[in-house]
Design a protein around this nucleic acid. Structure first.
Lengths: 111, 111
DNA sequence: CCACTCTGTCAGTGCTCGCTAACGTTAGCG
DNA sequence: CGCTAACGTTAGCGAGCACTGACAGAGTGG
């Protein structure tokens, strides 16, 4: 019963934010990189050929969407992928057909 | 030995195209609508408050990404969601941690 | 306190995307 | 054929996004 009155869910931690975050190939690559364990921002940036600024912004998007968690240790910031967040997306994909069954049932009842 | 010569997979039917298609809330809504069975383009457009042109473009994106199939019947065009395409995405999400396990194993062996 | 490291944040820019409006296309009917 | 209905396609516009470069802040060591 998590109050979802809005027709379009555009909150900062919503499913929409997660899908939008995953729409970017680099962000998926980053997520894959931090899925095995914690990684510092500098380490992550070193893996790609874009500036550290861009990677930092990608990490911000991933964090605000809830796909990764942030932990500070000294000057470094360690990131890690949140598996439950990804499971939420898989559940949403399943929900597409779950809702469809209800709709199909309604069509049958109407005829 | 994951033969991935291309750093970014940006093909028209690739996983990237599917994620980008699902990044838009309306396209997810459309996909949910055509998951129960075939629907004509006009029917789909009538469900939303945007112009039919916009819906047609959304359907084009969904079709080119492989998320929906198109079938022509007279002047009408019937669309339907392709479940196997969605399964491909769920597999990709699982693959994130599959690769991560290999990486974590390597880290353990190093230490 | 000062220097150095690691990192996020702030303008600015070019590209992409979603939307509307007008036009073109194909199928069926008299 | 002429006409209508059902769609797709193109041009143009405004918003959003990803990237770079310069600056600011927090933590650690001398």
């Amino acid at each position: 019963m998590h109050g979802s009155a809005a027709p379009l869910d555009t909150g900062p931690e919503s499913v929409d934010a997660k899908f939008r975050a995953l729409a970017e190939p680099r962000r998926r690559e980053i997520l894959r990189l931090v899925a095995g364990g914690e990684r510092a921002a500098g380490e992550i940036a070193a893996e790609f050929e874009v500036s550290r600024t861009a990677v930092s912004q990608h990490l911000t998007v991933l964090r605000e969407s809830g796909l990764v968690s942030e932990r500070r240790e000294g000057t470094r910031r360690l990131y890690r992928a949140r598996r439950e967040a990804v499971r939420e997306l898989q559940a949403a994909l399943d929900g597409i057909w779950a809702d469809a069954l209800d709709r199909a049932k309604s069509l049958v009842e109407e005829s």
